[in-house]
């Protein structure tokens, strides 16, 4: 078989195959039902900055609260357990 004959056969036999309509519809519905991930990497710079700043402040407040609680525990007078 020469190259030309082989090409002719490939054109004849390798035809486009249509997927089942039901399959296409089912997958389409499933894709619509699934939630799409939000791309944080594609957010605008100001949004990223705002997120970072918010996170930084939240972390700061958490640290202050923890420090206050710790100091409060230390400064509390201990219970005396002496016997009469």
């Amino acid at each position: 078989m020469n190259e030309h004959e082989l090409e002719k056969r490939l054109f004849e036999w390798m035809r486009p195959v249509a997927p089942r309509e039901e399959f296409v519809r089912q997958v389409g519905h499933r894709l619509h039902a699934l939630s799409m991930p939000v791309s944080y990497t594609r957010m605008a710079t100001w949004q990223t900055l705002l997120l970072l700043l918010g996170g930084f402040f939240a972390f700061g407040i958490l640290l202050i609260l923890l420090a206050k609680a710790f100091l409060g525990l230390l400064s509390k007078p201990g219970k005396e357990t002496g016997t009469a």
């Binding site: 486009p16 997927p19 894709l31 799409m36 991930p37 594609r42």
Partner: peptide, 20 residues
């Protein structure tokens, strides 16, 4: 890319047969 499902659905319709 911004999470628009309708847009992804459009891309799906466009390419499903080729990928299949």
């Amino acid at each position: 890319l911004q999470g628009d499902k309708e847009a992804f659905g459009w891309l799906y319709e466009r390419y499903v047969e080729r990928i299949y």
